[in-house]
């Protein structure tokens, strides 16, 4: 089953008179349960592709379907609605809200989805347990290491039980050990929950975890292979 589908997607950024074509006619289908890696050198369009799949941005041309729904005509609020129930994000920088504890950060998507207090509590504790952060539930981000923060970010991405999790360079700011822990965690959760993961990276040590590797160069897919 298709979780995300892109057909002939182009994204052009215009800064002043200069146009930059970040993606050029990309078509891609992501299926349910995949653990897909987007690879390629810097500037190849990995992050742009993730942002379009994640409905954080709109294509200049082409169409993006998420769970069968065409998204390029959706307004800001409709895209936010789609994201909160369907898509989870893990960012390269440790994107936790600094004033909230690990527990509260994981709870945030559930709050936005209108879950009850009891439902939230059960789900957050399950997720923190799954990422091995139960003991740090009430610590704020500045009291956690980079690896711990990224594990909390993974738990938050999973909180609303989305169909798809998008991770942009999730290990880029982690040392090898922590990077591998985060990748193993995502791989395990992919297997256990059947959640689809798409992550962008150019780190060869991370690519080996992928079940499918999509290679981009100059805004186009040049290779799409099973891992």
């Amino acid at each position: 089953m298709e979780v995300a589908k892109l057909t002939g997607v182009t994204r052009v950024y215009k800064i002043g008179e200069v146009e930059t074509r970040a993606l050029n006619g990309v078509s891609l289908t992501i299926n349910d349960g995949e653990f897909t890696s987007l690879v390629g050198p810097s500037g190849s369009g990995k992050t742009t592709l993730l942002q379009l799949i994640g409905c954080l941005d709109k294509p200049s041309a082409g169409k993006v379907f998420i769970a069968g729904k065409e998204t390029s005509s959706l307004n800001r609020n409709q895209r936010a609605d789609l994201r909160k129930g369907t898509i989870g994000f893990v960012f390269q920088f440790f994107a936790l809200i600094p004033t909230l504890t690990a527990y509260e950060n994981v709870e945030m998507p559930l709050l936005l989805n209108g879950k009850s207090s009891a439902q939230r509590k059960e789900r957050v504790m399950d997720l923190l347990n799954a990422v091995g952060m139960t003991g740090r539930a009430h610590h704020r981000p500045d009291q956690l290491s980079g690896g711990q923060q990224q594990r909390v970010a993974v738990a938050r991405a999973l909180a609303a039980a989305p169909k798809l999790i998008l991770a942009d360079e999730p290990t880029a700011n982690l040392d090898t050990e922590n990077g591998e822990q985060v990748m193993e965690l995502m791989k395990r959760l992919n297997k256990e929950t059947r959640t689809t993961f798409v992550f962008a990276t150019h780190d060869p040590r991370v690519i080996r975890y992928a079940s499918r590797v999509v290679t981009l160069e100059d805004g186009a897919i040049v290779k799409d292979a099973n891992g």
Binding site: G54, L56, R76, N77, A80, D81, R83, K84, G85, G88, F89, F91, F93, A95, L96, I97, P98, M108, P109, L112, N113, R156, A160
Partner: peptide, 16 residues
């Protein structure tokens, strides 16, 4: 700005 971006990314609407 970053936090607002994160909150928007995880589904917070403009009015929220």
């Amino acid at each position: 700005t970053r936090e607002i971006g994160i909150l928007s990314a995880i589904g917070m609407k403009g009015r929220q």
